[in-house]
Amino acid sequence: MKGHSPYVLELKAVSRTYDLGGGRTLRALDDVSCRVEAGRSIAVVGRSGSGKSTLLHLAAGIDLPNTGSVHLHGRDISQLSDSERTRLRRTEVGLVFQFFHLLPGLSVQDNVSLPGWIAGRSQLQSRALELLETVGLSDRAGQSVEKLSGGEMQRVAICRALLAGPRLLLADEPTGNLDDENADLVMNLLLDLTRREGSTLIYVTHSDEMAALADEVWHLHSGRLDIASPATDPRPASGA
């Protein structure tokens, strides 16, 4: 599945507009081009409606651009069928959400194992336990997720995203629904685990502090991308 590109993700002149009806349109992304090297962490900042989530959706192959192309490990995913993009997502992309999106009827371990079930890879069951061990939740593997705190839920969600060993991890405001203490814990864990797994991390955040932890910060203004300085030289993210 993997191409020979040195970049995990590459967007070339990508634009995405939405039809709002009545002849009105919304330009969520406007001629965006960028590249992400393997092992890097990127923070995406911007005001609400600036196109951050659209960028993540395009990167995950959940959405397609109107113009331009999105390349994942060198493959132009715009040219893939829905089924091919879905299969690619199974192995290459991990997703973490602001609202965790854990299934209430399943246990902690089952929630982590879910991508393995979907992919039909039963051998990932033991990896789920290993990941839970890493985030300190192995003793709660059999419990219902409804009994976890917000921070714990997000740790479970991170484990789920990492289960298949994806090369690209996309996180949409992973700490947006957590208190400060848990936010720090989860963000550090996310960065630590992605580094350890050798994955690339792109995360959307409204927090300057969180953005500062990334290798690069991308600013989105009304759909236009401004790739800024490395995180070692953070600058205030507009709209944060």
Binding site: A60, T86, R87, R89, R90, L95, H101, L103, I118, A119
Partner: peptide
């Protein structure tokens, strides 16, 4: 709807 979207985002095919 959100749960189904989650399955899709985690790589579940439509036929699954």
């Amino acid at each position: 709807v959100a749960e189904l979207a989650l399955y899709r985002s985690l790589g579940a095919l439509r036929r699954q």
